[in-house]
Structures are given as C-alpha cells and as structure tokens.
Design a protein around this nucleic acid. Sequence first.
DNA 1: CTGAAATATGTAACCCGTTACATACATTTC
DNA 2: GAAATGTATGTAACGGGTTACATATTTCAG
Lengths: 328, 328
Amino acid sequence: MMIHIATIKEVAKYANVSVATVSRVINKKGYVQKETQTKVEEAIKALNYRPNNVARSLFKKQSKMIGYIVPDITNPFFPQLVRAVEDVTVAQGYTTFLCNSDDNLEKELMYLNKMAENYIDGVIIVSNHMNENHLANLQIPVVALDRVFHESIPSVTIDNYREAKRAVMHLVENGCEKIAHISGPENIINSQLRKKAYQDVMMALDRPMYISEGHYQMKTAQEATFRLLHEHKDIDAIFTGNDVMAVGALKACTKLGIKVPNELQIIGFDGIEWTETVSPEITTIAQPIYEMGKKAATMLLNRINGNEEGQDHIVFPTELKMRETTKH
Amino acid sequence: MMIHIATIKEVAKYANVSVATVSRVINKKGYVQKETQTKVEEAIKALNYRPNNVARSLFKKQSKMIGYIVPDITNPFFPQLVRAVEDVTVAQGYTTFLCNSDDNLEKELMYLNKMAENYIDGVIIVSNHMNENHLANLQIPVVALDRVFHESIPSVTIDNYREAKRAVMHLVENGCEKIAHISGPENIINSQLRKKAYQDVMMALDRPMYISEGHYQMKTAQEATFRLLHEHKDIDAIFTGNDVMAVGALKACTKLGIKVPNELQIIGFDGIEWTETVSPEITTIAQPIYEMGKKAATMLLNRINGNEEGQDHIVFPTELKMRETTKH
DNA sequence: CTGAAATATGTAACCCGTTACATACATTTC
DNA sequence: GAAATGTATGTAACGGGTTACATATTTCAG
C-alpha cells in the first residue's frame, strides 16, 4: 500500500482555492478570509498535508537547518556542547546537522561544502584549521566555539591561557614545589595556550618544568605520568591539559600507590563528568560547557535573522571546582 | 562583496552547451563527447560551480541525508554509536542529521516529520515508544538500534536478557551469596529485561533479592547503593543495569570504605569507557557498540539502495570483560 | 458619491536541478 | 543501400513550494 503524500496543489483543489491561498494560510501571511482559512485548514487535515521543506528551501534559499562541526563526538567534552546547541535551535524550529571532522581540515571543508549545497542556514564550528578564506565564499553565518580561529569570525570561548594559569597557581598556593604538566596535542591551539600558561608561571617563579605529551587521551596520559614520575620521583603535583588526561594521571598514581592528594596533587581542565566519576574526584577548571553551547547557538540564530550582535568574541568565565585531588 | 553562486544554467552558457549536457557531465550518465566534457569541466572550475543538492532532492525525492534519533547524546553510551553510523554513511556520500528525543515520543514524531519534510533517505532510531503505526505513513527505511520496538522494523541489538543472566551468573560463580541489583528506569525495555534476568536467576537459585532503582544515573545509583547497603549489610555483590550506575555503586563503596572486590563485587553492563577510567576498573558485559552502529548503518544503506537484507533482526554477542571489581 | 486604501484571491513566473523525448548524425548489419 | 543501432546534444516539462503582480470587491474618508 503506497501512501501518497499530499502536495499543496491537492490541498488547493480539495479546498477549492488557489495554491497561493493555501500558502498564505500555512505561513499566516497576507490576507485570507476567516472562512477560507477554515476551509483550507480542513483540507490540510483531511489530506494529512505537510509542507515540503525541500521545495520551500529551494525557493527561499534557506533550510531551517543548522550545521555543527566538531572534531569528534566521542570526546566527552562535545556531547554537552552539541546538546546545548540543539536545545536552543530546536526551540526555534531548526534542526541540527552533526559532523565529525577528526580535526581534519579537508573533512571540515567537505562538510562545509555539503552544507552549502543544502542551503544550511548557519554553522557552528569547533576547529583549529579553518580560516577566513575557507569561509569567505560560503556566504553562511558562522560561529566558532571553544576555539577562536579568526578574529573576523565571532566566537564563544574561555580564556584558556588565563584559566590555565589559575590552575597552576592553585597548585602553587597549595604548597606544591615540583609541578609537572601533561600537555595536549601540539596542533590544538587551546592545548598550546594551556601549556604556555604552565611554562610562564614556572618561569616567573623560577621553578623547574616537567612536561610530557599526553595527546588529550587517558591511556597516553597514564603512560606519560609513569614516565614523569619514574624520572622525577619528587614531583608533587600535576596539571593536565584536559580532564581526560587528569583521569589518566590519577590512574597512574593509583597504580603506583601514590596517595592523592597527600603525596601528589592533580588538577585538570574542562569540567567534564569524568572528573566526578572517579575517586578521589578531580579538582578542575570547569568551563560552563552547556552555557557556552547555548550562547553560541543564540549568537548564530541572531546572525541568521540579521540581528548582528555587538559582541563578537564572547569569553566565558570558568569555575575552579575544588574537589579531592588537591588540598585547599 | 556579495559572492554569486553559479547555477547549472550559467555553466551551460559559459561552456556553450545545454543544461542537459552539463547535467550529464556532472552525473557521468548518458552520452557526452570527450571534448564537450572537457569544456564543461573547465566551465565548472571557472565558475566554481557546485550542484545544488536542494534542487536535486526536490526532483529525485531523496536527499543523501540520513537521520539519527537517540534519547540523549550526553549519555556516554551514544556518542560511539553515532560515530560509527557517521563513519559508514559518510563513506557513501551521506550526511547525518542528529536528534535528541529525550525518550519522548512526541519529540521523536516531530523529528520524524521534519525528516520526511526534508526527503531524508533513511533513519536510525533508538526508541522505546515507536511502533509500526508511527512509521507506516512515513515511507522511509528505518533501522532500530539498541532496542527492538517492533518485529516489522529491522533491528540491531544484543540479547539483553541472556547477557544480563550471564552477568549475574558471573557473580554467582565467584561465590557471591547476597547479590543486589540496581535497576534502570521502568519504561526502558532493556532495563526491564536486565532486571528480569536478575530476578529469574535469583528465583531459580532460591536466593534473596535486593533491588533498588537507580534511573540509569550515577548519582542516583550511588544513593540507591547507600540505601541498599544500609539496610542489608551482608550484601556481597551488585549487578547494575548499566555501567553508569556501576560507577555510582563503586563510588558509594569507596565512600563507605568497603573494599571492592574483596568485600563486595560489582558488575556493570554496556562497556562504556567510564568503566576503564575508575579504579578499580569495572567488570562489565561489553556490547560491541561501534560494531553495532556500523552494522545498523550498513543495513540502512542497503535498504535505501533497495537491497533488502535477509536477516532482519541482528543480535550481537557481547563480551564479559573481567576486570577489577570482580574476582575471577 | 468618488477615489484611495484595505481586503481577498488567483495566475504564473521562479528557485535549480533531472530526465523523457525529440532530433541529427555516424556506424553497423544483412 | 536501407534499416537498425549507437552516439551526441538540445528542448521543455517537472518536482513542490513562494510570491510579485493582476484583478476584484469592500471599506472609508472627504
């Protein structure tokens, strides 16, 4: 039994009016007499009519869809961001298009192209590689999230450098002497900034530096911690470039029988849920992840609707969540 | 500087051919002379032409987009599933539409409608509420993932009842006497099946039952564990309805100073990454999450292409990951 | 009472591709 | 050498909406 999907023409015929009138009723736009409106509404109901968004998009050159490019949805930092964006946009009648770029410029551009081909109304991007040129011939409003990639593109971020300094200072204030850092990938701006913050604080205080690369991953960070602690037994604190790596560092300590926070303190960065699943719970610099997603979505929607916002680069404050891996 | 997006007509004019010829070149379909093809390709390059997918969809009634409805992307079980689906579909030129339903039938139907309006080619759904009728007038291939919701809808799942029994039996075999269960929400089929498995095993072995509801959440499961252990101090094992709750149970034990696995053993269900982030690492029944997503995507693509698959209800095997919260 | 403004509805062009069909020439077949 | 087949390209209808413009009727101010 093939079900037929009604078109506006059929509705018009059924209601004995023209397609223009049906369109006016659907969009509540232009003059329509009360009775006519009722007739049309009845026809719509009778034929179970739903306007076809593809046809609509073709004419209007907009789709009521927004795109969302993240490096990798399995990274626990992103689902909340995605969720926030969706919550905001759905409320305004938009649907969301999700794409995983693997931090790969080619994929990002491929997706951007696909989006353009589909008259996507706007895009939220988390990227390190994108620049103005890539977006210039796109003609679509864009908001950068989590990472600024060009000053001309509005963004929602935190001050990674400043907040990372705060994390390190928290360890210093807690009396730590030998503070190590497990850094994230070289090619990710935020991880560079966080590392630089660590280095600058150590430099300023004339302290030794112990840095090992943890690739933003738990397992790798665990190994990095083993290495670090093996070479420098007197390390008494670790600042990791993100929370995932803090979990790895904590695991390493647990395996080595090092008491956290008594013998060694740990502070992470991001504020993902993982920090609360482990014992002891991890002290971290928490980004207002959901709020940031919401803000980015709101900014994007404003731009789509032509209400340019004054503020182009929103920098959110973070919260130092003092938990169980640091003394306070 | 307003950038103009070239249409097929402009390409045709530039190359001095008709739109039909351009279309033939783009789609590599029908006869085109070598020289003409080159001319057209040059025109495409010169005008930076990209075919408009909206117009194409309108005519072909298909969009090269597939939809994906999950209860909540922030539940750590889903990102991997989503990722797997995307990996498969993108390789075939499809893009993914992500929707969070909050396990709410109305939202699910709303999204399904949106998808139909956009000529989405197929949908993968994780749902408890959907039934045949909801999908009947949709005319879109559907594959159910993680949960079967109707026998007429192809599905990719595991045997929740059998595997949950296996989990409980693992505790029994490890010598546990008083086994408790922290259950998931009543309205989720899988959580009911897992609970029933626990009850049936206990019944068969004539053991006492201790059940507390944990809502699939860490915090709630932690409280449920406190309650359970407060009332029954001799409980020596807990089977939780999912891994998130296993983490909650473990936290409760840690806080109460109960040694895991020596005084109390814990086994979870699902195989999410959380089980490896905590110490001790949690023993669990691991679903091949990524593989399941991949399979579901492949099945869907086959259906979209008209290659009905013989097998309609794929049931994947699981793996009992023996880790540190049970003795073996 | 007349002309302007507001209300109500229809016709047809348009958005941008795809493809059925028509046309024309080249090649093959018997 | 005529008919059949293959190659190459163009014309125009079509998909399902939106909207500019035309037309007709009603309302209202002066």
